[in-house]
Amino acid sequence: MLDVIYTYLESPIGPLLLAGDGVRLAKVGFPNGKGRVATDDDWRRDDGQFVEARAQLNAYFAGELRTFDLALMPSGTPFQLAVWQALKAIPFGVTISYGELASRLGRPSASRAVGAANGANPIPIIVPCHRVIGASGALTGFGGGIDTKRWLLAHETGRHTGEMQGSLF
């Protein structure tokens, strides 16, 4: 990415890094875990950017928004882009398995590849990779950690109790 602009959004799950060209989001980073995104020296912080992304994320966390409508600029392979597009079709508060997502893509035997693409999603929450779970119903890997995934799913089903608790943030 050239000319990367970033800011942070305080959220109930900790400070989220928003990065891209100032309008279009290329990355959402968690404060911890494998989904943590570190800024590069040539990135420029501008807290006046990503106005619409911040507004929609705040509305999501307030329980007022179920579907995001933002300009995105994810970078990935054609397969990854197809998986990420399919993630956006999973309704708010609904979970599906990796196998079901693979079937929706017309690749029923590709659940592991779908899982890898899901794990590489650079724009979590907005592209809702947290809505994909194991075939047994188990919460499996998530860039922000399993506690964050559990919180997001509880938030979407009305079972959350406010900000995340614990020593993660």
Rank of each mutant, 00 (worst) to 15 (best):
M1F: 10
L2A: 08
L2S: 11
D3H: 14
V4M: 11
I5M: 13
L9S: 12
E10M: 11
E10Y: 14
L16R: 14
L18I: 06
G20K: 14
G20V: 01
D21A: 06
D21M: 11
G22K: 15
V23L: 11
L25G: 01
A26D: 03
G29K: 14
F30C: 05
F30N: 03
N32I: 03
N32K: 13
G33M: 01
K34A: 08
R36C: 03
R36I: 00
A38M: 14
D40C: 05
D42S: 06
R44K: 13
R44F: 01
R45S: 06
R45K: 14
D46T: 01
D47R: 15
Q49P: 10
Q49S: 12
E52A: 05
E52Q: 09
A53I: 03
A55F: 10
Q56R: 08
L57A: 04
N58I: 00
A59K: 08
A59P: 13
A59Y: 09
A59E: 12
Y60M: 10
F61V: 02
G63I: 06
G63T: 03
L65V: 05
T67A: 14
F68D: 03
D69Q: 12
D69F: 06
L70M: 10
A71F: 08
P74W: 00
P74Y: 00
P74E: 00
G76K: 12
F79C: 09
Q80R: 14
L81D: 06
V83Q: 13
W84D: 01
Q85P: 04
Q85F: 05
K88I: 02
A89R: 11
P91D: 10
F92W: 12
T95F: 06
I96N: 09
Y98L: 05
G99Q: 14
E100G: 05
L101G: 10
A102Y: 04
S103I: 02
R104C: 07
L105E: 02
G106M: 11
R107K: 13
R107Q: 12
S109H: 12
S109W: 10
S109D: 13
A113T: 04
A116W: 03
A116C: 02
A117I: 01
G119W: 06
G119N: 12
A120Q: 08
N121C: 08
N121S: 04
P122I: 00
I123H: 13
I125T: 01
C129V: 00
H130P: 14
V132C: 09
V132R: 13
G134H: 15
G134S: 13
S136V: 02
G137I: 04
L139I: 01
G141R: 04
G145E: 00
I146A: 10
T148G: 07
K149Y: 04
K149C: 07
K149T: 02
K149M: 07
R150Q: 14
E156K: 07
E156V: 01
R159Y: 04
G162Y: 15
E163W: 10
E163H: 10
Q165L: 13
G166N: 09
